[in-house]
Simulated assay, not measured.
Amino acid sequence: MPIRPVRANVDPVSNEPPIPDERLVVRDEDWYGRDLSGGRYARHSFLDTDWTEVTTQGAVFDECTFAGVRFNASRHAGAAFTNCTFRGCTFFDTQFSDCKLVGSLFQRSTFTLFKVSGGDWSFVGLPGADLRQATFENVRMREADLTAARLEKAILTGSDLSGAMLRGSKLSGADLRGSDLSSLDPLTVELGGAMIDLEQAAVIATALGLRVR
């Protein structure tokens, strides 16, 4: 039995793309405005495909690879993108509502007017991602990898960041109110001008070795 190659979202250090099954490859196609709601895709590879204004309500994508895909103005509601890899993709005015992206990895992608509301993004890999002014509201992001991510002026409210990797992230001017910051080490991130609530202030003070009374 052939040995299955290590997928990038299992080994985020590797830049080697997974070997696609040609029977499951969608390449250089224009899917502009398609409604993929309710569809199911497993181990498909979408390469250099235009997903502008695509909708995926309730669709399921498992262990899929998206490389060079344009997700501009696409809308995803109640969809699942589990253990997927997004490489070199464009997310302009893209919205995810109550979606499940557990275990997925984003590499060398761009995010502009990017908005996520609700859903489960636990174990998602976004290391070094430029998420300036992005919005994450009420999102479960347990053990998400946000190492060295740029989150200046981002909205990251009411979200579960327990166990998240935040070392080297830039959170200046970000709105963090209501989010779980228990795994944040204030000495390893940039927090200037970030908005937090009183409970979070106590958590950060404790992390700095201060006693709050």
Rank of each mutant, 00 (worst) to 15 (best):
Y41Q: 12
D120S: 02
R108Q: 13
A164R: 07
N9T: 07
D130C: 02
R108K: 15
L187M: 13
R23G: 14
L105Q: 11
F86E: 08
E199A: 14
Q133C: 07
L198Y: 04
P17H: 01
D30I: 10
S97F: 13
F111L: 12
P5F: 01
N15H: 14
G39K: 15
Q133P: 00
E29G: 04
A148L: 07
F81K: 03
L171S: 05
A149M: 00
A164P: 04
D98W: 01
G118C: 02
F91D: 00
R132T: 06
N15T: 15
L208Y: 05
N15L: 15
V6A: 09
V189D: 01
D62H: 14
R40E: 14
R40Q: 14
D185R: 12
P5T: 00
E63Y: 09
R211F: 11
A205E: 02
F106M: 04
P2Y: 05
V13F: 12
H76P: 04
A80D: 14
W51N: 12
V10I: 14
T90I: 14
P127I: 01
V212C: 10
A129C: 13
A149R: 07
R167C: 04
Q200K: 05
R211I: 09
G178L: 01
I204T: 00
V10N: 11
D28T: 08
W51A: 10
K170E: 10
R75S: 08
S104G: 09
C99H: 03
V10P: 09
P5E: 03
S45T: 15
D160S: 08
S97A: 10
R150I: 10
L166G: 05
G193W: 06
R23D: 14
V10S: 10
D98A: 10
G33T: 05
R23P: 00
F66E: 09
F96R: 01
M1N: 11
G39H: 13
D48P: 07
E53K: 13
K170T: 08
C84W: 02
G119L: 02
L101F: 14
F71A: 08
N83L: 12
T188W: 02
P12V: 03
V203K: 04
E53M: 12
R34A: 10
R75F: 06
V54F: 06
Q57T: 13
V139T: 00
G118Y: 00
L198N: 14
S183P: 00
R23Q: 13
S117T: 07
A42V: 15
R87D: 15
F114N: 03
T188Y: 08
H44C: 15
E29T: 11
R167I: 01
S169Y: 03
P12Q: 01
S104P: 04
A42Q: 15
T55R: 15
F114C: 09
C89N: 04
L36M: 15
Q107V: 12
W31D: 08
